[in-house]
Design a protein around this nucleic acid. Sequence first.
DNA 1: GTAAAAAGCG
DNA 2: TTCACACCCTCAG
DNA 3: GAGGGTGTGTCTCGCTTTTTACGT
Length: 547
Amino acid sequence: MIELPQGYYLTNFLELVDYVYEQYNDLLNKQETEFYLNFKSLTKEAQFLYVRMLTRKGLVFRESKLNYQEIKDIQSASKTLSKASLVELNPPLAAESLIPVFSKPEWISILKQLELDKETIVSIKKLSRGALDEMLIELDKEFDLYTLIDEPIILLSQFEAFETFKLLFFGNLNQDLTDFVLRDLGLYRFESYQIDRNSRLFSSREQIENYLNYYQVLEGLDEALQGDCKAIINFHQLLPQVEATDNTLMRRVQRVNISLARQLERLASLDQALSIYRENSLEPSRERQARILLKQNKVDRSLEICQQIINAPRSESELIFAQEFGFRAAKKHKIKWPQPDGYKPPQETISIPQTEDNVEISARQYFSQYGECFYIENGLFLSVFGLHYWPLFFAPIKGAFTNPFQFRPHDLYEDDFLKKRQDIYQKLSLTVDNMQDNIENYLNRISEKQGTSTPFVFWELLTKDLLEFAFEHIPGTHWKQIFDRIFLDIKANRSGFPDLILFPAEGGYELIEIKGPGDKLQKNQLRWMKYFAKHDIPHKVVNVEWQ
DNA sequence: GTAAAAAGCG
DNA sequence: TTCACACCCTCAG
DNA sequence: GAGGGTGTGTCTCGCTTTTTACGT
Ligand SMILES: [Mn+2]
């Protein structure tokens, strides 16, 4: 087990804020700059204490609950923090903030000071935590609960400033200081790509504000989705208006907007949903419009949307939707519409005994009688794809990598991703056909990079056995064609591969999608199969029924 | 009382 | 904060 | 049976300590 040095968390914190200050000091506001400079001037113990609190839940702490051996004198540490305005000591607190700091049994013993009668105490003990909280809030209205507390309370201040630092460092607010720890413990592994110190993820204060605003508003999303139509529209208006120059944030905002509109549909506010979809450029905004319009009996307008999609589809999935949905709608209303070319993959049915394992495992067992069979789903093809194009994904392109905790370049899903990496893409693609020659490289890469975070390689799946079978029996042209399709739309085509791969004793291979009773082909699975058929890649659907 | 969930932590 | 499945409903034939 | 929708696992580490839920 790896041991971390004492104060590891402060080292991590400083690495983060120092880097951000170096890169972004011109974009920080006054509060953030002061936060940084103040913090740097603190005593070590005060710094320890601040970061400890920052990584714990909530903003309010009892001094007695902050016990750390590296903080010898907590009172002087908290006083130092207080002078620097990084905490407040015994501040006025609303009941909502004070209540969570004590556990249920603790509150009961605190309330004993009020000399309540026995029955009241018994009834309080029966309350759930949530009900107790409500009761205490009510009680606080008559009697200030704070006066019953006789121990020092510390309120963490200026944590918002650190939010900005985290955002600037990671580019999101999903990652935090634990990434450092997990990496240093050897639990996470990141590729050691070259970090581009010369480009920044954020280029203006306005952009930063938009992000911060987005994340802040996002906290209310669940509540809005559970609310009524009004709550949802309100929420929609709270989201930042993002300029088209900021693709990343625009996508995030639009994704939220789609979930809002989807909920409006459920609440039968179709017109409001429509208007949100109309100003949205992500999928499935046009699909939803077509569906809503048909539902409203506006057949012509629905078909118009379908036609717009067909003229300029944003993806294969959207195109297929428009062709099929348009066809069905048109047929029903006796309008002319080209018949889509449906594809029916080869099917067969097997009958096997039901076990505790899931249906894919049972089916794999069954097919083992014909040869070697592996349960791979997306793992095999994506993994080899990731291994082969490894240098492409981690290439030091401008702005692609700005911190050590990325599992992919920032621009992986941008339209110009490949264009920016043309040379390396061309070069690596030349060798896709000779898989036999690649095996050694792959095995080397596996042993060298084992466990490194990437969106493509499923390390635990890649046994030598599987790879040897795969490279012996799957022709180079098939690999090439599969990789080509993944590149066409990395996000959409990274899933939908069949469950099993069978290498029959007599040679060759076959991809097998298992369908248990009641399950059916997903759209993305069908799209892959259509492509397999076009390129003579052997595949079939096997329906399982229980013996 | 015990079991499950949440928080803390390296 | 994904992807694949499980399970439900409706509707047309 | 096809098409469509919703709900549900998994808690991207694994361990220890604290807190809550509940009467099997
Ligand atoms: Mn399946």
